[in-house]
Simulated assay, not measured.
Amino acid sequence: MASSALVSKLEANVEIKASPDRFHDMFTNKPDHVHRASYDKVQGCDLHQGEWGKVGSIIIWDYVLDGKAGVAKEVIEAMDPDKNLIALRIIEGDLLEKYKSLVATIQAWAKSDGSGSVVRWTLEYEKLHEGIEHPESLLQLVVDLSKDIDTHLTALPN
Rank of each mutant, 00 (worst) to 15 (best):
M79F: 01
Y125M: 09
A18D: 11
M1L: 14
Y39M: 03
K127E: 09
L88K: 07
N29K: 15
H48M: 10
A108N: 12
I149S: 11
V7F: 03
L47Y: 12
Y99R: 01
T154N: 08
S101C: 03
L88Q: 06
K68H: 03
I132Y: 02
K100T: 15
K73E: 09
W52P: 01
T154L: 08
E11Y: 06
T28S: 15
F27W: 13
S19I: 13
K127M: 05
E77A: 06
V75S: 04
A78L: 11
N158Y: 11
L128F: 07
D66N: 06
T122C: 03
D80R: 09
I60F: 02
E133K: 06
K30Y: 10
D82E: 14
V34Q: 04
H134T: 14
N13E: 14
A155R: 11
K9Y: 03
V7E: 10
T151G: 00
W109H: 07
S8T: 04
K9T: 12
S117F: 02
L138R: 13
A12F: 01
T28F: 08
W61Q: 01
Q107H: 07
S19T: 15
A5V: 14
V55G: 02
L85E: 14
S146H: 05
R89N: 09
E11L: 04
G53I: 12
Y99F: 05
D144C: 01
L95E: 09
K54A: 05
K98W: 05
E74A: 05
L85S: 11
W121A: 12
P81T: 13
G56K: 13
E97K: 03
